[in-house]
């Protein structure tokens, strides 16, 4: 069975939020304390299975420092899905979310799927952002929300699969040009949003 579709994803968020760790966990199912700073832009590939179909995910990981946006901005347009990542132990990374979201609205295609991720949820004692606050932000953004931990492998697989399914059904629906399907899809998605919001710890 061959790959039937390639999905391009982008991971953005403040420097140090754990973007590369999330990606490493998803790709290699591993975690490292000795992570190297991402310079410019990096990318990884993983193939996932949805409804028995193989979907190749091409995931672009970005440097978080603001000045690198003049490099990373070019990657928004081609992205079908974008993860906006913050660190639950770092309020500044949470406060910058609106700016990241504005960037998404400005640069990406209109139908892009966005998922908000609150990373490092294993560090409960250092937590600055409650899960409710994260969820409220996701509601404001009208997007799915996951709290994740790359260290303890929480929520990451779900986040990526939700993203992949969302895009797969969305593009499939538009391809088949079936309005009915589209409607159903919208319903499933909104169901997912309410039920699939994942918490941890």
């Amino acid at each position: 069975m061959g790959v039937i579709q390639q999905i391009k994803l982008l991971i953005i968020g403040e420097s140090g939020a754990g973007k590369s760790s999330i990606l490493l966990r998803f790709i290699d199912d591993s975690f490292s304390h000795s992570f190297i700073t991402t310079i410019g832009i990096d990318f990884k590939i993983k193939t996932v299975e949805i409804d028995g179909k193989l979907i190749k995910l091409q995931i672009w990981d970005t440097a978080g420092q603001e000045r690198f946006r003049n490099i990373t901005n070019a990657y928004y347009r081609g992205a079908m899905g974008i993860f906006i990542v913050y660190d639950v132990t770092d309020r500044k990374s949470f406060e910058s979310l609106n700016e990241w979201k504005r960037n998404v609205e400005k640069l990406s295609t209109k139908d892009v799927t966005v998922i908000l991720i609150g990373n490092k949820c294993d560090m409960e004692s250092d937590r600055k952002i409650s899960i409710e606050e994260g969820r409220a932000k996701a509601n404001e953004f009208n997007c799915n929300f996951f709290e994740t931990s790359s260290k303890n492998n929480i929520g990451i697989e779900e986040a990526f699969l939700t993203m992949a399914k969302d895009i797969y059904y969305r593009t499939k629906a538009s391809e088949e040009d079936a309005i009915q399907l589209k409607k159903e899809n919208v319903i499933t998605l909104s169901n997912e949003k309410s039920t699939k919001t994942s918490g941890c710890c």
């Binding site: 304390h33 000795s34 992570f35 190297i36 700073t37």
Partner: peptide, 14 residues
């Protein structure tokens, strides 16, 4: 200061 400190352990970590 903040971002420099963040990058220290991420510079040649090996």
């Amino acid at each position: 200061d903040r971002i420099i400190k963040r990058d220290l352990p991420r510079t040649f970590p090996k």
